[in-house]
């Protein structure tokens, strides 16, 4: 555990230093992503000007969802930048590199890339939470914790669907569609969907656990629900890891010779 944590921190530092080598591109991507996210909120601002609430959700609730999802997504792709590339790495036979080194292969695979634009998501989530929501500062530790849980759901779910490649072969497209579906659905309040879709968003694509449930907890705290959410995330991470390790037994290496800088 301590060894994995050290690996994560070392890679975070190393990836950040490489990104900072191109400072202008780094800054453009962060500012660009923040602007991009601000403009996404435009839709809800106009809609809630017309309607007071949507099945119990108002503008404040939607901003809370955006803040948590953006922060969680940002953490996921900054620290575990290969989250959305697991399927691609397995299908191309690029796991060889990680298997040959004395570090945990899954952790190593996940941390070996950093999304620079992810910093923009991370800062955006934190900023709109602190600026747009009243009494935000009092709940900041809870926000950070819930954001981390959201980030872990992103990572675990993408490892789960990425690991399908071990059995299905070329399933990168399916895996990326499912990963994108999690992100897309997580940005909408769960209560706007009809019953069947709502069940799917709790069970099949756990979008409710990324956006709506943490947002509800921030607005109306409940210890028992927080505990439930934390246990769900731990179990999801464990199952994702188990599936990846199980799939590794079926992994077939490629014969591609590549050089890594």
């Amino acid at each position: 555990m301590a060894k994995s944590l050290r690996l994560i921190l070392m890679y975070l530092r190393h990836n950040l230093m490489s990104a900072l080598a191109y400072r202008v591109a780094f800054m453009i991507q962060i500012v660009g992503m923040m602007l991009n996210n601000v403009m996404l909120l435009f839709f809800w601002t106009v809609l809630f000007n017309r309607l007071p609430t949507l099945n119990g959700w108002g503008l404040e609730g939607v901003i809370t969802i955006y803040a948590i999802v953006a922060f969680g997504y940002g953490v996921a792709v900054v620290v575990f930048g290969n989250t959305f590339h697991v399927a691609e790495v397995i299908a191309k036979g690029d796991l060889d590199y990680y298997l040959a080194l004395p570090a945990d292969p899954l952790t190593h695979l996940l941390v070996s890339r950093m999304s620079i634009a992810g910093w923009g998501d991370l800062f955006f989530g934190l900023l709109i939470y602190c600026i747009a929501l009243p009494a935000a500062w009092r709940h900041l530790p809870l926000f950070l914790f819930l954001g981390l849980l959201s980030g872990l759901v992103f990572v675990a779910f993408n490892v789960l669907v990425g690991s399908l490649v071990f059995w299905l072969g070329q399933a990168q497209n399916l895996s990326s569609q499912l990963g994108n579906a999690l992100l897309t659905f997580s940005l909408y309040p769960i209560d706007i969907f009809p019953g069947v879709v709502r069940v799917l968003l709790y069970v099949l694509i756990p979008a409710a656990f990324v956006g709506s449930i943490p947002a509800k907890l921030l607005m109306e705290f409940n210890t028992f629900q927080l505990l439930e959410l934390t246990i769900f995330v731990i179990v999801l991470c464990y199952v994702a890891r188990l599936l990846f390790m199980f799939g590794l037994r079926r992994y077939e290496s490629g014969n591609l010779v590549t050089a890594r800088g």
Binding site: Y22, V24, A25, I28, Q29, V31, G32, M33, L35, N36, M39, L40, A117
Partner: peptide, 13 residues
């Protein structure tokens, strides 16, 4: 510019 992707994001939004 070193990176044009963010300009595209803004255009898209």
């Amino acid at each position: 510019l070193e990176e044009v992707l963010p300009i595209y994001w803004i255009y898209q939004k």
